[in-house]
Every structure is written in C-alpha cells, then in structure tokens.
Computed example of a mutant assay.
Amino acid sequence: MTIDARRLALVALLPALAGCETIYEPQASHFGDANRMTMAAQVVDPDPQYDTLNPPTSGEHAGQAAERYRTDKVKRPAAVSSTQISGGGGGGGGGGS
C-alpha cells in the first residue's frame, strides 16, 4: 500500500512540475550573442565616412625615414612620461609580537 501512496503523491506533483517550466525561462534569446558581436566587429564598413579624404603624407619624409632605418641612424623619440610624480607619503603598519 505504500507504493500506491508514493505513486499517488508523484501523480499529484506532476502538474506542479509542469507549471515550473513556464516560470523558468532560459536566456535562449541571447544564445550566441558573443559570437555574433565578434563577427560584426570584424565586418568592414562598406561606406566609411572620413573627416579628410586623404590624410597628409610625404613620400620624401617616408624615404628619408627608410634610409635612416637602413643605415641604423633612426631618430630617437622624445621621452614622454605617462605618469606624474607627486609628493606624498604613506605609512605602513608595523607588526609586533
């Protein structure tokens, strides 16, 4: 008789489990978005809009730079610091025993 009671309880709980299906909604609509976004980022704009049609260039300067590179007389770039050093100090905690 205990088997029949278990079956009856199981049958009584089945509609409750079916109701849980509609509450739980997986994010299937977002599945694959990362892949699609990565592919979209790699697509070239078919009609790019630029501020200047041709950026200013100089063939003479490029030739001089190539010659300096070949003869190992490359101009050193100016030193640029990306951080500012400011005064200040910090104290550390001391440990004791």
Rank of each mutant, 00 (worst) to 15 (best):
G94P: 03
Q64E: 09
E67Q: 05
E21P: 01
G92Y: 03
T38Q: 08
L17G: 09
L8D: 02
R6S: 14
M37H: 03
G89R: 15
D4F: 15
S86R: 07
P56F: 01
Y24Q: 09
I3H: 13
L8R: 03
I23S: 09
G90F: 03
R70N: 05
M39F: 13
A62D: 11
Y50L: 13
F31Y: 15
R76Q: 09
E67P: 01
Y50P: 03
T22E: 04
Q49D: 14
Q27R: 14
S97M: 10
G63M: 12
G95N: 00
P15L: 14
V43P: 02
D47Y: 12
P56Y: 01
A28F: 15
V44G: 08
A41K: 15
T2M: 08
G63Q: 02
M37D: 06
V43W: 03
G19W: 02
P56V: 15
E25P: 04
T83I: 00
A18T: 01
A16M: 10
A28M: 08
I3F: 12
A34F: 14
T57P: 00
A79F: 00
A79W: 11
A34Q: 04
H61I: 04
A78I: 05
V11C: 02
P15Y: 01
A9G: 05
G96Q: 06
D45R: 10
M37F: 07
E60A: 15
T22R: 06
E25R: 14
L53K: 03
D33G: 08
G88N: 06
G63H: 04
H61P: 03
S29A: 02
T83G: 07
K73V: 11
E67G: 09
T2Q: 04
S29V: 09
G32A: 13
A12C: 00
N54D: 14
N35A: 03
E21S: 13
A41L: 15
C20E: 08
C20G: 08
R36L: 14
D4R: 12
G32R: 14
M1Y: 12
S81Q: 08
L13W: 02
G90I: 06
G19H: 05
P56Q: 06
P48N: 03
T38G: 05
I23A: 11
G94E: 07
H30K: 11
Q42R: 15
S86P: 02
H61S: 08
D4S: 13
G89C: 03
G89H: 14
V43H: 06
D51Q: 12
P15M: 14
G59A: 04
G19C: 02
G92P: 01
D4K: 09
D33H: 12
Q84A: 11
P15N: 10
P56M: 11
S81K: 06
S86E: 06
L14N: 01
G19E: 07
A9S: 13
V43I: 13
D45F: 09
D45W: 05
G32Y: 11
G32V: 08
G93A: 11
L53R: 02
A79Q: 10
A16C: 05
H30M: 13
D33A: 13
R7D: 07
I85M: 10
